[in-house]
């Protein structure tokens, strides 16, 4: 899976906001506020990923257990899927 083209993430002072353009903007017209972990996953999803590859990347970068990481990944993917922003 990967993110639709046209999802950009803006960061100020630890606040992350994703905006959508073009095709992605037609699917989801609005902004998504997220924390640093979610933003990290969103950046990864600019290229093809699996749930496993995202969980692994999260574990390598942050000090979290595999279980916590997997849970986080699922949560973020659910949100993105709900917004129609994933290409699977």
């Amino acid at each position: 899976m990967k993110l639709l083209q046209g999802v950009l993430v803006s960061e100020v002072d630890g606040e992350y906001v994703a905006v959508t353009l073009g095709k992605a903007g037609k699917k989801f017209n609005g902004m998504i506020r997220m924390n640093g972990t979610a933003a990290f996953l969103v950046q990864r999803l600019q290229s093809e990923q699996s749930e496993e590859s995202l969980t692994q990347a999260l574990c390598e970068t942050y000090d979290v257990s595999a279980e916590e990481a997997a849970q986080n990944v699922r949560m973020v993917l659910d949100k993105l899927r709900g917004a129609g922003l994933l290409e699977e």
Partner: peptide, 29 residues
């Protein structure tokens, strides 16, 4: 700054073109 970001973004014209949109995000920042 954190409170301002979403408010500013929602009142800016965001072009469909990706590099123009990146320029807009930098200006908002």
């Amino acid at each position: 700054a954190r409170e301002s970001l979403t408010r500013l973004l929602s009142q800016c014209f965001l072009p469909d073109d990706e590099s123009a949109a990146q320029a807009v995000l930098s200006m908002v920042k």
